[in-house]
């Protein structure tokens, strides 16, 4: 197990190093002078030269790469050309916001997707199966942007059940200021017992989380169904049946646990993917998250910020995969032996 872990860690480091070099290379190949993003659209030649000097953009490329890696390792992720804040500070704000949204959405997707998958597997090729398969097909294929606008217009605009946009009611900052520990608003509000902000955040979370949850819920349901059906044909499940357990018990008590393995890998993948790809949802609901930050940075050719986002997401992928490796060992002890 330990050797397995060490090997995975080594691979992960290689992946991250590759990402760093690749991002750097791509940033320098893109046409356009990054100094313009800092010095302004009408900058004088002197102002542009000063900006290039400040960010070392005139140095030879290998020297720039070396300086970049050195800074990264020492924790200096550079200054964003667009926001003029340290990239790490920007990410420390945007990442927790995305984590909150994607986390909530995934909890929702798991809570809905797995039971639906079980239901579909239990009544394979019968009406519930049909319903679940149709529903998950819809959830997977509906354009996120459209779903976001539709839910917003209906439930926030017309019915007024939920807020239109935002993370929580900003007026609460003055009446019940939030003490930050993790930068994840809902978590901090929970830890510090700040109920007004907690309820406001949860209320604001409902619509965007529903939208983000649609795709994962669909794939989780489909994957659970497929894995369960496969497991249900295995010897241990047939054994259960032979011992007189009902079909539902066979599925939930014998087949579900081994079937969760591929589902866990899928959840990890969907999680990391949703972190940056939620930017359309983040834009519609004014969620100050990572996807929005990445989109704005790309639009203004903000190279340090783009590199920062890429690196962070790579780290998250790697970390999540490691965590899943460990979790799979917990869920399915056979993995530990293999």
């Amino acid at each position: 197990m330990l050797r397995h872990l060490a090997r995975r860690l080594g691979q992960a480091l290689l992946v991250v190093a590759g990402v760093v070099v690749l991002t750097f290379a791509v940033m320098r190949v893109v046409p356009g002078d990054p100094a313009v993003a800092f010095a302004g659209p009408k900058a004088t030649p002197e102002q542009l030269a000063a900006a290039r000097e400040r960010f070392g953009l005139d140095d030879p490329l290998p020297a720039q790469l070396l300086a970049y890696v050195r800074d990264l390792v020492t924790g200096d992720w550079g200054i964003s050309l667009r926001t003029r804040q340290p990239v790490r500070d920007d990410l420390a704000l945007a990442f927790p916001a995305s984590l909150e949204l994607v986390g909530a959405a995934l909890l929702l997707a798991i809570a809905v997707g797995i039971p639906l998958g079980v239901l579909a597997a239990r009544y394979k090729t019968k009406f519930p199966d049909f319903g679940v398969r149709l529903g998950s097909m819809l959830a997977v294929s509906v354009p996120v942007f459209w779903l976001a606008l539709a839910l917003q217009t209906l439930f926030a605009g017309a019915l007024g059940w939920f807020p239109v946009a935002g993370e929580y009611d900003a007026r609460l900052d003055t009446t019940s200021p939030l003490t930050l520990w993790t930068n994840i608003t809902a978590v901090d509000a929970l830890i510090t017992g700040n109920w007004p902000i907690l309820t406001s955040t949860l209320h604001h979370l409902v619509l965007p989380a529903l939208v983000v949850a649609a795709y994962p819920a669909g794939v989780i349901a489909q994957m659970t169904r497929a894995a369960l059906i496969e497991e249900a044909g295995q010897d241990h499940a047939r054994m259960g049946r032979a011992l007189g357990f009902g079909e539902t018990s066979v599925l939930t008590r014998f087949a579900l646990r081994p079937a969760l393995n591929p589902v866990l890998s899928l959840i990890a993948l969907v999680f990391a993917y949703a972190l940056v790809n939620g930017f359309l949802v983040e834009a519609v609901f004014n969620w100050p998250g990572l996807g929005r930050y990445a989109a704005e940075s790309i639009r203004s050719l903000d190279t340090p910020a783009i590199a920062g986002v890429t690196l962070l997401v790579a780290l998250v992928y790697v970390l999540v995969n490691l965590v899943v490796d460990l979790l799979q060992g917990l869920v399915d002890p056979r993995v530990r032996v293999r």
Binding site: A92, P96, D173, T179, L180, W181, N183
Partner: peptide, 9 residues
């Protein structure tokens, strides 16, 4: 990203 107990706003 830990912010160590700052008060927001």
């Amino acid at each position: 990203a830990c912010a160590g107990g700052q008060v927001r706003g």
